[in-house]
């Protein structure tokens, strides 16, 4: 097993995104650090557009993630609906 992770700035834009990630990735661990939130997951972490949209109540483009992204680890696969990090 290898850990993948993603980290965001702590702010009002990322709060619902992090909640969406927690919903979609039950095995993920969320670490609150000064000014940032780091989410670790074993082997794979999936971010789903739909889940974020349900949280924020508007349409969402996954590329918006980049504005508040701090860092990540693992191979990235991205399309309109999902943003996936994995060590495969």
């Amino acid at each position: 097993m290898s850990t993948v992770f993603i980290a965001f700035q702590t702010n009002e834009e990322t709060r619902p995104i992090i909640e969406a990630i927690e919903l979609d990735n039950p095995s993920a661990t969320v670490h609150q650090e000064p000014a940032m939130v780091k989410i670790d997951a074993p082997d794979e972490l999936v971010i789903r557009r739909e889940t974020i949209e349900e949280q924020i109540g508007r349409e969402y483009d996954l590329q918006e993630l980049q504005v508040n992204l701090i860092t990540m680890s693992g191979h990235l696969t991205e399309d309109e609906d999902t943003f996936t990090l994995s060590w495969k």
Binding site: Q9, Q66, L69, I70, T71, L76
Partner: peptide, 12 residues
Amino acid sequence: FSAQSDEARHMT
């Protein structure tokens, strides 16, 4: 953090 938001793309 403004710089770091670009880093994820650089790392990729």
